[in-house]
Computed example of a mutant assay.
Amino acid sequence: MTPGDRRPWLPVALLLLQVPGCWCLSGPTSVTGTVGGFLSVQCQYEEKFREIVKYWCKSPCLGDIVKIEKSDKEVRSGRVSIRDHPANFTFTVTLENLTEGDAGTYRCGIDTSWLPGYMIDLTFRVVVSVTPDISPA
């Protein structure tokens, strides 16, 4: 870098590209639904997590956690359902009968806390927005 160079972050960013990382869980960063409607979120995971518990929760994930422990089975809790699709390494969360109170930050998660080498669960943040229903009456 030369004096006055306005890119001091570039060497750090390049260094981070050299560090092996884990992109173990991915999905949409935001989704939008309409009041009274539904929305679905598909979270993708790596094959090595096929048999591991997956979950969905509203941040900070202190309660109302919906978990799925068996592959190819759907679990429902109130207006939320979660289904694992191990054949394509995804799980789908569906929120039904949306209310404005459903808006917020959620987490797709994999319960890795008991696996060697993992200090915390793997999670992916999803921002849920809920818009008013403006369809004609």
Rank of each mutant, 00 (worst) to 15 (best):
E51M: 09
K67R: 15
R6W: 03
S113C: 00
W23G: 12
D121E: 10
V127P: 00
G101M: 02
V31M: 11
L122G: 00
T29Q: 07
G27N: 03
D5M: 05
L14S: 00
S40R: 05
K54V: 08
V75E: 14
V130I: 10
K73C: 00
R79D: 10
K48G: 00
Y55K: 00
K48F: 07
F49P: 10
I134S: 13
D5N: 12
V130R: 03
A103R: 08
W9G: 04
F38R: 05
P132Q: 07
V41N: 02
K58S: 08
Q18T: 13
Y106V: 09
T123L: 06
S71L: 07
L39H: 11
V19H: 00
P28T: 05
T34S: 11
S81F: 06
Y45L: 11
E69Y: 10
D111Y: 08
T34M: 10
K58G: 06
I52N: 09
T32L: 11
H85T: 09
T29V: 01
D64N: 13
V66C: 05
T131V: 15
F38N: 14
T34E: 15
A13D: 04
C22K: 10
T112N: 04
T99L: 13
G27I: 03
S26D: 12
V127Y: 05
F91Q: 05
W9M: 11
R125A: 11
M1Y: 13
Q18D: 02
L10Q: 14
G63Q: 00
R79P: 00
G27L: 05
W9Y: 12
C22T: 14
M119L: 15
T90N: 09
W23N: 13
L16E: 11
G27K: 03
D133T: 02
T29S: 02
V130Y: 02
V128T: 03
G27F: 06
D72C: 06
T94L: 09
I120E: 11
I134D: 12
A137Y: 02
L62R: 00
A103K: 08
V41Q: 06
Q42L: 06
V12A: 07
G104N: 10
Y118E: 08
L14A: 12
V41F: 02
I68H: 05
V66D: 05
W56H: 10
K54M: 06
T123I: 15
S40N: 10
T32F: 01
R50C: 05
I65A: 03
L62M: 01
R7G: 02
P136A: 14
P28G: 01
E51R: 08
A87Q: 13
K67Y: 14
I134K: 14
H85S: 09
W9E: 13
C22S: 12
L10S: 10
L10K: 15
V80L: 02
I134L: 15
G33P: 03
K67D: 06
